[in-house]
Computed example of a mutant assay.
Amino acid sequence: MFFAKEEPFALDIEEKTMRELYELCGADRELLFSPYCWRVRLALAHKGLDFHSRPIRFGEKALIEFSGQKLVPVLVDDGQSVHDSLAIFAYLDQRYPERPLLGDGLAAERARLVERLSFHMVRIPLLKILLPRIGQVIDPADREYFRSSREQMLGMRLEDFADPQGGERLFREGVAPLEMWLRDQPFLEGQAPGACDYLLAGMLLWAWCLGAQPWAEDSALGAWFTRIRLAYEREHGPIRRASF
């Protein structure tokens, strides 16, 4: 089951709009695990905007050639395409100003800081945990491409980079400041979630969809993640999770 409606949705904002989200999937097209695509899903849910899901595999990049680049997510909104999760956040705020994601200039800069920090403090540790799992859930035809492209990016063999135990230790160290922050308020941005929450939650959904959870359920971070995940599932149905 997809978690977006499969029929065009008529908005009461300005005009009827067709919206499509091209996002990464595994061999099972219902298993959506890209952290950057999850950011956009959460942002669209925040705005109350419906969309068609267009899951694509690693070997199907020709489907997004129209965007002028080869990476997901790609959002197509009423004929206009936007890629990169933060650029999509900014576009959504401009086109649909209700319930802003990035807010004023200072808030937008704060989101960019969280994006930079999460890359080193969260993404890299999670990648050490998730690399073997990604290889198992993608289409077999994509495995050679996945290996060669990631090894080129990392400068080493996947087996030499992957380190689930080390990744968990680095992850716990990286999120320690967030754990303390979330003990005092329900969301990173205060009493309600915003762009910073979705930027980080996309990373954790990456792990969760791939069957990993290197955070304690009863931690402040765990409670925050559960609030965001359950709020999404209440509106869009259960999120597909891989089993190993």
Score class of each variant (00 low, 15 high):
86 L>A: 14
133 R>Q: 12
5 K>H: 13
164 P>V: 13
238 P>R: 04
142 D>A: 15
25 C>E: 06
34 S>Y: 14
240 R>V: 14
76 V>W: 00
112 R>P: 05
193 P>D: 09
11 L>T: 03
91 Y>L: 06
159 E>Q: 13
47 K>C: 06
2 F>P: 01
9 F>Y: 07
240 R>L: 11
53 S>C: 10
232 Y>N: 06
114 V>P: 05
129 I>E: 01
81 S>E: 08
4 A>P: 00
104 D>H: 08
1 M>A: 10
39 R>L: 12
50 D>C: 08
67 S>E: 03
62 A>N: 12
192 A>K: 12
111 A>W: 11
217 E>F: 12
235 E>A: 15
83 H>Q: 10
227 R>A: 13
225 F>C: 02
39 R>S: 13
55 P>E: 10
116 R>Q: 14
225 F>R: 02
26 G>A: 15
241 R>N: 07
152 Q>T: 03
109 E>K: 09
107 A>D: 10
15 E>D: 12
94 Q>G: 13
88 I>A: 02
11 L>N: 01
138 I>V: 15
239 I>R: 05
107 A>C: 11
144 E>Q: 14
141 A>H: 05
146 F>S: 08
228 I>G: 00
63 L>A: 15
37 C>F: 13
98 E>M: 02
64 I>F: 07
106 L>H: 09
138 I>L: 12
17 T>K: 01
187 F>T: 01
